[in-house]
Design a protein around this nucleic acid. Structure first.
Lengths: 212, 212
DNA sequence: TGATGTGAACCCATTCACAGCC
DNA sequence: GGCTGTGAATGGGTTCACATCA
């Protein structure tokens, strides 16, 4: 998140900022910002703040973003196509080494400027292009099998967009993005908000509102 | 996450499960599962476990998922189109009340079975269809202005897919999904894994591997 | 016996508060 | 004076351990 905010500041031309300012932008405590950044080293200047460009560079280096990471996308359905077309990945240093599917009506088609290949070719591409990150964008039913294939092919990390929890061998990292789940969380807030509104109306007094 | 796992179990036909089993599936501690579920009430049976269907219903009710939530999608680019086409939202009770854009080349087109409308019509749709959740899928430059419009239209919660942090008035909830950011986190793991592999090779001994 | 529900203990991220430095 | 960097204090989420009950 800090990195994203810093990128925005660079675009604006800002060159210096204090932990206070960064904290306000990130919506966190200033002490937390300083503590977090202190784990990277002492890159601030007392009395002045942090140099935006330098700090950005240090965070990128720590995250391993100083070189390109090739990724593969498994699943060329709605979501897979969107992710392949989505410029945000390549913009931030993740090149798409291949898009894969098992559906013969999809294989051979072009998505995001690349031809869709059959999942059987996964291993070959992962190994020849040194891919270590895979994106899972299959339907739920196919997700576990696709994950198995990714692991067997040698991928070490999986970003799972499928609406199921997958299991992987120890040592493989998984992050799951549950798109509908995010909406569910918001619906919870909205339900609380609605309940509060009702309570307020009944009491005639002010009521607290749920906030993220 | 519990809900998602439970949905999978229902599909499998599982009817009972213990906190131990659920914990294993969720990758957490069994005590945590029991503590979490205890906040909903005492819906387990000592010596037996939890009834999958009943527990699912209780979680859904708590999250406010016992009725449909209409949502609007702002931004009909790659990501917006994908989200509109993505079946996962409607499947889980989020109907798409409208897709909006400011680009005249997109307005009037059809996405996800619905016509794309101009952002100027946002307020009208939000109010007539009682929409309280908005999905932001615009480019970064347009995100803040689109968020302002969502808030003005009366939306109370925003799911932000734009690659920037937006600010909203107090009382409005925002959740941000940073797609590339997720990959960045994985790239960090991979960098560590690579560093460990090098260290192991140098030492000739076993090395620890980073895991999520 | 076996698994839940929960007070108490624990642990670690967050915050405070201030010394240290520009 | 102003802001960083960090030891110490805090607070709350997580885990333990066991009373409780089917």
């Amino acid at each position: 998140m800090y990195l994203q905010i810093l990128n925005g500041l660079i675009a604006d031309g800002t060159e210096q900022l204090s932990s206070d300012q960064l904290a306000a932008l990130a919506g966190v405590n200033a002490a937390k910002v300083r503590k977090d950044l202190s784990y990277l080293g002492s890159y601030g200047t007392r009395g002045v703040g942090y140099d935006v460009n330098f700090l950005t560079y240090q965070i990128q280096r720590e995250l391993g973003l100083n070189h390109d990471w090739p990724i593969v996308i498994v699943g060329a359905g709605n979501l897979g196509q969107a992710l392949a077309n989505y410029g945000g990945f390549t913009e931030r240093g993740f090149s798409i080494a291949g898009v894969f599917d098992t559906d013969s009506s999809k294989v051979g088609g072009v998505v995001g400027g690349a031809r869709v290949r059959h999942l059987d070719d996964l291993s070959q591409v992962v190994q020849s292009k040194n891919v270590s990150i895979g994106v899972l964008a299959t339907p739920g039913e196919a997700a576990q099998e696709a994950a198995n294939r990714l692991v067997r092919a040698g991928v070490g990390s999986i970003l799972n967009f499928a609406p199921v929890v997958i299991s992987v061998p120890r040592g493989v990292s998984v992050r799951r993005v549950d798109l509908a789940g995010e909406l569910q969380i918001l619906s919870y807030y909205e339900q609380r908000r609605a309940a509060n509104a009702v309570a307020r109306e009944a009491a005639g007094g002010p009521a607290r509102v749920v906030s993220a």
